[in-house]
Amino acid sequence: MGAILSIAKTTIGEAIRRRVLLVILLVGVLFLVIAPGLSVLSLRQNYTVLTSFTLGVIQLTSAVIAIVLTVYLLPNEVERRTIYTILSKPVYRWHFLLGKYLGAVGALGMMMLLMSTVLVLVFRIMQQQASMDDVLQLATAPIFFFVQMSLLAAVAMFFSTFVSPIVNFFLSGGVYLVGTLFSPVFQDLSNNQTLPAAVKGAATVIHSIVPNFAQYNIQGGIINQGPELRSIELYYVQIVVYALFYIAAFLIAGMMIFDRKEV
């Protein structure tokens, strides 16, 4: 356990100093700050426009950071041979992978916290009429983005055990896009009784392999509520458990591949 946390800590320390990530983060923060100005330009300047724009910026920035950060974690260790020193200590490979993953999530969390803070500040200053409640409500969205990004990082971690960073970048990005844009579609297809069995089957397979990223897009409490949804809290618990399950599945699969890999 100590080894896993040390590896995570070191990974965070390194990640928050990586220039590429800092530049991406800076661009994100910059967009957040100028967002009110931009929404003035879009005639319908109102709370909703500003909300969806800024949350969109946070989500996109976080997704790019999550992928760019994670795809290089293992390959860099191999290339710089730091992994050899670590694996020659009494450290199992799964310790190493888990430590790296937790480090990625930790660094991601810190960067997202920074953006969320800027978000809250921007709303406090620009939307004086919005109540503190509204702003807090707004701040729940990044929390679920964080869950979403942790899941995305697990996907990227999994791929990084067997593909190169560049390929991984597109693979993870692709999975994220499909999981964000098309998950509801696949869900509908797999539940549609009128479709041929083959199509339904394929939709079900894709729907269960590709994580449903869409369900984490919660904007100010508005979500695509299903009929079975009783309370928002229950929904939150459900999607967090869902994320934990998928994270575990991707990490365990990754560990199994990494364990046999020649590094």
């Binding site: 070191t10 320390g13 390194e14 710089r80 041979r81 730091t82 050899y84 020193t85 020659s88 200590k89 009494p90 450290v91």
Partner: peptide, 15 residues
């Protein structure tokens, strides 16, 4: 055994 041995790789790198 790894508790009782150590390794200095060629051209090592440190964080």
């Amino acid at each position: 055994s790894h508790k009782k041995l150590s390794y200095l790789p060629e051209k090592p790198y440190y964080y």
